[in-house]
Computed example of a mutant assay.
Amino acid sequence: MAADTRPFKIPHSVLVVIHTPALEVLLINRADSPGYWQSVTGSKDHEDEPLEATAVREVREETGIDCAIGTLTDWQLENVYDIYPKYLHRYAPGVTRNREHVFGLCVPAGTPVALNPREHTAYRWLPYLEAADACFSPSNAEAILLLPQFTKP
């Protein structure tokens, strides 16, 4: 079996809270950690990839949703957190923290979802307070709780 030759992940990522105008939030279940519900997340592919491009790419890769059907908003928020120990092997030696930039994506109710089965096994739409409670990631839950501040009445 060949050694893993994938490059190390860049410790700069996006978190995209996908939601409807009624503040229902899309959560996806991680394939590598059953029961770990989250919003779309993902690292830059290369250092100079714009964060908005990272968000658009990750939403498409993980959910099949084209951001053009909705409104992608940069919330101008950034979280810095310790990388979970089980994922440290994906990063260069000595990298222990990640910078995560937060976006919101408002999509029409009923937007179809087509998961990448290598990454996620299930999805569900929940009212935002329930979605925040269901997230395994504290920064993801906090972002979802901010949703009403970033949506127009």
Score class of each variant (00 low, 15 high):
residue 91 Y to F: 15
residue 98 N to H: 12
residue 106 C to V: 15
residue 13 S to A: 13
residue 89 H to I: 14
residue 2 A to C: 05
residue 141 A to H: 02
residue 21 P to R: 14
residue 152 K to H: 07
residue 73 T to H: 15
residue 126 L to N: 01
residue 26 L to S: 00
residue 143 A to N: 07
residue 101 H to W: 14
residue 81 Y to S: 15
residue 131 A to G: 04
residue 71 T to D: 15
residue 45 D to C: 07
residue 144 I to Q: 01
residue 70 G to W: 03
residue 12 H to M: 10
residue 69 I to E: 14
residue 51 L to D: 03
residue 4 D to N: 15
residue 116 N to P: 01
residue 57 R to V: 10
residue 45 D to R: 09
residue 118 R to S: 09
residue 53 A to H: 04
residue 96 T to G: 15
residue 52 E to A: 09
residue 107 V to E: 11
residue 88 L to M: 13
residue 103 F to S: 08
residue 42 G to E: 05
residue 121 T to P: 06
residue 34 P to M: 10
residue 31 A to E: 03
residue 15 L to V: 04
residue 153 P to M: 08
residue 17 V to D: 00
residue 3 A to K: 05
residue 41 T to E: 01
residue 127 P to R: 01
residue 32 D to N: 13
residue 147 L to R: 03
residue 130 E to N: 12
residue 50 P to I: 08
residue 134 A to R: 10
residue 62 E to W: 05
residue 17 V to P: 00
residue 34 P to K: 05
residue 36 Y to I: 06
residue 109 A to F: 12
residue 78 E to Y: 13
residue 15 L to R: 01
residue 133 D to H: 08
residue 46 H to D: 11
residue 2 A to G: 08
residue 149 Q to G: 09
residue 151 T to K: 08
residue 72 L to F: 05
residue 80 V to H: 11
residue 18 I to F: 01
residue 96 T to N: 14
residue 76 Q to H: 11
residue 69 I to T: 15
residue 153 P to T: 13
residue 36 Y to F: 11
residue 69 I to C: 12
residue 7 P to D: 11
residue 49 E to G: 06
residue 125 W to A: 02
residue 47 E to Q: 09
residue 21 P to N: 14
residue 67 C to R: 10
residue 27 L to R: 00
residue 131 A to K: 01
residue 142 E to H: 05
residue 33 S to E: 11
residue 111 T to A: 06
residue 41 T to F: 05
residue 92 A to P: 08
residue 46 H to C: 12
residue 116 N to C: 09
residue 28 I to M: 08
residue 127 P to Y: 02
residue 39 S to D: 02
residue 58 E to T: 10
residue 75 W to T: 15
residue 89 H to L: 12
residue 132 A to W: 03
residue 92 A to W: 12
residue 110 G to A: 07
